[in-house]
Design a protein around this nucleic acid. Structure first.
Lengths: 125, 125
DNA sequence: GCCATTAGTGTCAGGAATGATACCATGCCG
DNA sequence: CGGCATGGTATCATTCCTGACACTAATGGC
């Protein structure tokens, strides 16, 4: 998560970009959202499988923040063992074009960047 | 910047999202790119005016990383006082739809999130 | 000679975000 | 009774970001 959470948006036009970024800055949030777009409904454990590099704590954090921002809903079934379902809210669903753009770009160009970096590291090595 | 920079992309389809995110994770990078889309060419000091919350050091960092990722070019004019120009590379320009999506969403929905958060903080206060 | 300019770099401190690990509740199964 | 399953917490360590400050280099103006 970005370290500074702004609360006022009446500054420059870039502020809305900044504000949007704060929803994503969470390092894993875009991934979480991406998977929710893919699967509609996910349980905590399913996120863990899809995002193996995220610690349980971070995952909890990020999900709670997404929930606090009204992008994701959390439904708890009071059973044992626990059962919790996450899904996108209506607001969350509006992010689809953004996630889609990220994915599209990544599919097309991520490899270019990899090459770029590899070329440089090869030079230094 | 995200703390883990992956170098391999042959994992799940979400990896390209992840990879794209790493270019943005830099907390300020998307803003930097946004301003470059607006202004085409920017000098270091101009970034500082547009991003008053970024420290000089962070700005340098982020710009260097963007340069290393091949998204931004840095042109130094060997004069005194120093003159340095930043602009998007061809690869950088391909990010336009992504930045645009961020901006569009922010313009439309950032206020919704603000309201959401405000409502919650009002409850707790 | 002294100050200002620009795009930084270097260093130190403090705080925030992240990671690793251990632990919990509860009910079912054997 | 012991262990497993799920969705977490709690605690501590590490790593990253920020802030404040000092310092640089070459030229122009006072």
């Amino acid at each position: 998560m970005p370290r500074t959470r702004h609360t006022i948006l009446d500054c420059s036009p870039s502020c809305t970009v900044e504000a949007t970024l704060e929803l994503f800055g969470g390092k894993w949030k875009a991934l979480i959202l991406y998977h929710l777009f893919e699967d509609q409904v996910l349980r905590f454990g399913e996120f863990r499988h899809r995002l193996p590099n995220v610690t349980q704590r971070m995952l909890t954090n990020q999900l709670r923040e997404l929930e606090a921002d009204g992008l994701v809903s959390r439904t708890v079934f009071p059973v044992v063992p626990p059962h919790v379902e996450y899904r996108l809210t209506e607001l969350g669903k509006t992010l689809k074009p953004v996630i889609q753009a990220l994915k599209t770009w990544g599919d097309q160009y991520a490899h270019s960047v990899e090459r770029e970096k590899k070329a440089k590291s090869d030079q230094t090595v």
